[in-house]
């Protein structure tokens, strides 16, 4: 087993709907090694997106512990400002998040989006154009998001993530809005680059084929722990 990048222990999260408490994640535990990939599957509402949000600090767990790159987040208690700052710092520099859509700022060109993300992470913006080129959209660098196709936008989103040189990529249905052919192309690029640069990847998807490309698999519909 590779050195641990992420360890999750006893993670629980529930939502309140009216007077009813709906458990979404219950006592979930798993680990992810450096450079490894994990597929999160499960039907809609099974908690895939919620888990990704918990893993990057966008939402707070009700109970459990997350250890990311040696930093421990006790999430049972109300999060302190210092913890929030730590999560922000991790998201800025170590965690790349890719959503199903709308990953780009509409008022910036593709290149400016990549530069923006790299600068936020404290990385050099010099290689931004290279990243776009590596993702086969170098010629579209000066275009705005509404001037390119959905697949090209997702490639740009991946370029943004890799330009920040993350330790962990959290991808929430990154090909959900794409056609099969484009989705395959984008997925291939994602796996290639993840393998080449050795960052961890957690991929939430409905797609069994896509999930099969990952080294580990966590089905939130059937398993409570791995």
């Amino acid at each position: 087993m590779a050195e641990s990048l992420l360890a999750v222990r006893g993670l629980s999260k529930h939502f309140v709907s009216g007077n009813e408490t709906v458990p979404v994640i219950e006592k979930l535990s798993f680990t992810l090694g450096q450079g490894q990939s994990l597929a999160l599957t499960g039907r809609s509402g099974s908690g895939k997106s919620t888990l990704l949000n918990l893993l990057c600090g966008l939402e707070l767990a009700d109970a459990g512990t997350i250890v990311l790159q040696g930093q421990v987040f006790e999430t049972g208690a109300k999060i302190a400002r210092q913890k929030a700052m730590k999560w922000s710092s991790l998201r800025r520099q170590q965690i790349g998040v890719v959503f199903q859509e709308a990953n780009l700022m509409p008022a910036l060109t593709l290149l400016e989006n990549v530069q923006f993300r790299a600068q936020l992470a404290g990385r050099s913006t010099a290689s931004s154009q290279d990243w776009l080129t590596r993702l086969d959209i170098g010629a579209l660098a000066q275009r705005y998001p509404d001037q390119v196709s959905g697949g090209q936008r997702q490639r740009a989103a991946l370029a943004m993530v890799f330009a920040m040189e993350p330790a962990l990529i959290l991808a929430d249905e990154p090909t959900g809005s794409l056609d099969r052919h484009t989705a395959d192309e984008v997925t291939q690029v994602l796996f290639d680059l993840q393998a080449r640069y050795g960052c961890g990847l957690i991929l939430a998807t409905h797609d069994a084929e896509l999930a099969a490309g990952c080294q580990q698999h966590l089905d939130l519909g059937h398993l409570s722990s791995l």
Binding site: L58, M85, S88, L90, R91, Q93, V97, A102, L120, A121
Partner: peptide, 9 residues
């Protein structure tokens, strides 16, 4: 999205 990219609220 800015928050997701690591800016604090």
């Amino acid at each position: 999205l800015l928050v997701a990219w690591g800016m604090s609220q």
